[in-house]
Design a protein around this nucleic acid. Structure first.
Lengths: 146, 146
DNA sequence: TATGAAATATTTTTAAC
DNA sequence: GTTAAAAATATTTCATA
């Protein structure tokens, strides 16, 4: 279903999603219409979920990043889930197995903002916060071997 | 430094990074050259880190997703960090405060692959694995208020 | 310093193979 | 999957607020 050329296109777009069809064509030794058609199919099949941007949180005022494990109290799961979804500081949330129910990534302007945010769910959930000190692996594609 | 128009451009590109200058210009009621100039500056200032794609892990063979907290044993921190970085299944890794040192997001083809991967660092680190059951918030921009 | 208009150059799309 | 022509778009230049 996906060949080496498709994988090459994905890897190129992961680095620069605004590459023109012409540039993609040159890199894959195909013609532009051919690349356009492959792109269309990759989107249609849902391999490419979205063309998007990575924004540097620091440059838009978010000086801190935290990963918070959230364990809702009995009966509070759905409310907590909704509260998390509505936090503008939440950029990612997964529902997971194990003692914790949610793992949330927050962008924060200050420690005070973190405190306020967690206070807002303190009555409904236990939380465990880790502050991000560094990012050894920035979001990237996984291996694309067949 | 960043005005409402810039924020609008960021929000539009977060949804579709391949929007043409013309489309961005229409949406912001600016001319194409004007949008091009703003884009150039957003990149130059590092507000936009990258134009990239979101790939659906299922469509490229990764049926499972796990978030693993990793706590290296004394003296093993740097080796463990390197081992994580070299895992093609690792799509994200943060170094954090607290008992755990690293929080890693893995894409996996099978449970067996998870087992093999964790066995590979078992002598150097304690790990705690959560399997992703759902994703209430998919990666998104944080609030962009000034 | 940021914008817009117009001209030019480039790219994308379409159609035929 | 390709080529080549038509259509759409991007870029450059320059004038302007």
């Amino acid at each position: 279903m996906m060949d080496d050329t498709d994988r090459r296109i994905l890897a190129l777009l992961a680095e620069n999603a605004r590459l023109s069809l012409k540039e993609l064509a040159a890199a894959t030794e195909l013609s532009s219409p051919s690349v356009a058609e492959r792109l269309r199919k990759l989107e249609e099949r849902g391999v490419i979920d979205a063309f998007t941007i990575d924004v540097n949180p620091h440059q838009i005022g978010y000086s801190l990043q935290a990963i918070v494990r959230v364990r809702p109290l009995p009966g509070q799961l759905h409310i907590v889930e909704r509260l998390i979804q509505e936090m503008p500081q939440c950029v990612e949330c997964d529902k997971v197995t194990g003692d914790d129910c949610f793992i949330v990534r927050l962008y924060l302007r200050s420690m005070e903002e973190l405190d306020t945010l967690l206070d807002g769910i303190a009555e409904r959930a236990q939380t465990n916060t880790s502050l991000v000190k560094a990012t050894p692996v920035k979001r990237r594609l996984p291996g694309l071997l067949p």
